[in-house]
């Protein structure tokens, strides 16, 4: 018998090497393409917003963690950085600093830490922050700078409405949809990201890249994005088929108003989405449906943020009713 001291613990004795750190940094890497596109089209304004949002999110998390909760320090896990970037993604690049900081405080302080921190919050923190800002500062939150390629001057750029807002306002004022569609950017511009909008929502291609990366790295699964976007297409497609003069086509819905940003980065937030595959599908379908309903029949042009928050509220219920299929489930008669 050797006299080495042996560790005794229960099986399993090996671990995959997955870590919260890795998951979170995986999400951050996935956000880089969209971040770059926002820098390219919105210049230094976008850089400024990102830095302020991330820094304030991290600082608030640190302070609350240290002085209010007095728990272990979770800054290193990167989740506050994600919330910061997502917050930046959801606002215009010309938003005043102080509004960003307030948004960040609401996201981290109210939506995350007051529920007990990482893993405990029922609502997506960045979305809570965004909706708070949207309601409190509607003017600043909906004046978007016009995208201009590689323009890094600090002069305030002109503003431009988002395609969704153009269409929604236009229809309200009785303009014809054909006229309106000629005012919006081309499909290619929308696909690349040359359009007015919040920083992170503009470029479909960059967002899709990030999404594929996360699926490849097994950080997210396809279920939520596909069911959400699929439902949006089906619902808006049905309306479009009924009356093409009155409703815009489904592709437009997909490429505008943060649909992809929501589907790929917001709805898939692991903390606030369901735990089973079926649950995820139901959740995605719910978000897609509510989004189109708000866009077409509601007061706001976008809808994605509200739709996700509404479905966040249903997650505990979804988790209760949509269990995984148990192996060897015995069917009970009657």
């Amino acid at each position: 018998m050797s006299n080495q001291l042996l560790k005794v613990s229960l099986s399993p004795h090996v671990h995959s090497g997955n870590s919260v750190h890795k998951e979170m940094y995986g999400v951050i890497y996935a956000m880089i393409p969209a971040l770059l596109v926002s820098f390219i089209f919105f210049g230094l304004g976008a850089v400024r917003v990102t830095l302020i949002a991330v820094a304030s999110a991290v600082v608030f998390e640190y302070l609350i963690q240290k002085y209010l909760i007095k728990g272990s320090n979770t800054i290193v896990d990167g989740s506050a950085v994600i919330t910061g970037i997502l917050l930046a993604f959801n606002v215009p690049s010309n938003l005043p600093c102080w509004i960003i900081i307030i948004g960040s405080l609401v996201s981290i302080g109210v939506a995350k830490m007051s529920f007990g921190g990482l893993g405990q919050n029922p609502f997506n923190p960045a979305l809570v922050g965004r909706v708070f800002m949207l309601i409190s500062f509607p003017v600043q939150m909906t004046s978007w700078p016009k995208p201009s390629f590689m323009n890094f001057s600090l002069v305030d750029a002109e503003t431009a409405a988002t395609p969704l807002a153009i269409v929604k306002e236009g229809i309200k004022n009785g303009e014809s949809l054909t006229d309106l569609m000629s005012q919006i950017p081309t499909w290619t511009q929308m696909f690349i990201g040359e359009m007015g909008g919040s920083m992170g929502e503009i470029s479909a291609i960059a967002l899709l890249l990030g999404g594929l990366y996360m699926i490849w790295k097994k950080i997210i699964t396809w279920h939520i994005p596909v069911s959400m976007l699929g439902t949006m297409v089906l619902f808006s497609g049905a309306l479009y088929l009924v009356s093409p003069e009155q409703f815009v086509n489904p592709l437009f819905h997909l490429l505008t108003g943060g649909a992809l940003l929501g589907a790929i980065f917001m709805a898939t937030d692991m903390v606030t989405s369901p735990m089973t595959k079926t649950g995820m599908l139901i959740y995605g379908i719910g978000i897609g449906f509510i989004t189109i309903a708000i866009r077409v029949f509601g007061a706001y042009p976008e809808g994605v943020s509200f739709a996700i928050l509404v479905m966040n509220a249903f997650v505990p219920l979804i988790n209760t009713y949509f269990k995984p299929k148990r192996f060897g489930e015995v069917k009970k008669n009657g």
Partner: peptide
Amino acid sequence: QPCIRCAKCVSVCPMGL
């Protein structure tokens, strides 16, 4: 660490638990 509700444990359980 706290559970981040990533659902990985659910998806790897061979018994559907």
